[in-house]
């Protein structure tokens, strides 16, 4: 009889817990912010929201340059399937990578040139190719936009955002930097001596 009572109370407690769980709706905060920003559709605002909410996740997702290079040479298919993002048919592969840059210098007021893991890295200043940042971030889904013009406006906004940050950037004396950025490479590339990188974070 006592056992029956215990079972009954446990069952009631479980039911109460279930009812409590179903009465709450939980959602990832950055996903909620993303959805809200999308519903308002303001490209500049979307880019600010993306930079505010996703940098730490992008940092975690980004591969160290040495590891990325190693995988690219040894097993490009696995690298592509596990880490690349792409946009449709024939698209380049977009990756987030991080690296420690050395020998950083400014060339013709157009780009920063640096070296990391034996690769020449170029960070454009005059013109920043927005699609690489947009598509490597994985934050924007083309299906969420009314048309491709709206989708591309995000690229332009991202381009402006990064260009503005780069305009404020002053090359430090020690000329070594840490970078988190996006790259786009052709699907069949296995070895690259030079890499154009669009910076999300560039700091001493």
């Amino acid at each position: 009889m006592k056992q029956m009572k215990i079972v009954k109370w446990i069952a009631l407690a479980l039911l109460a817990l279930l009812a409590l769980r179903l009465s709450f709706y939980t959602e990832n905060l950055s996903e909620k912010n993303r959805r809200e920003a999308m519903s308002r559709y303001n490209p500049e605002e979307l880019v600010v929201a993306m930079m505010r909410d996703s940098l730490s996740a992008l940092e975690q997702r980004a591969l160290p340059l040495a590891q990325w290079q190693d995988m690219l040479q040894k097993d490009p298919q696995t690298l592509a399937s596990t880490h690349a993002r792409r946009l449709g048919i024939g698209s380049p592969l977009f990756y987030m990578i991080r690296a420690e840059l050395s020998e950083v210098c400014l060339v013709d007021d157009e780009y920063l040139r640096a070296f990391a893991e034996g690769v020449e890295i170029r960070i454009p200043i005059t013109y920043i190719f927005g699609n690489t940042a947009r598509d490597a971030s994985g934050w924007f889904n083309i299906d969420d936009f009314r048309n491709t013009m709206d989708f591309n406006a995000v690229s332009a906004a991202m381009n402006d955002y990064i260009a503005e940050k780069m305009a404020d950037f002053r090359l430090p004396e020690q000329a070594s930097l840490r970078v988190l950025g996006a790259v786009a490479i052709p699907e069949d590339a296995v070895r690259l001596e030079r890499l154009e990188l669009i910076p999300f974070v560039l700091e001493p």
């Binding site: 946009l87 449709g88 048919i89 698209s91 083309i142 299906d143």
Partner: peptide
């Protein structure tokens, strides 16, 4: 691609992408 997707749709597949960009060279 459009014809192939239409065929898949007619045969009952519904989980198709809404937009499919094709890269330009």
């Amino acid at each position: 691609t459009a014809a192939t997707l239409a065929d898949r749709y007619i045969k009952g597949e519904r989980n198709l992408p809404k937009k499919m960009p094709v890269a330009v060279e």
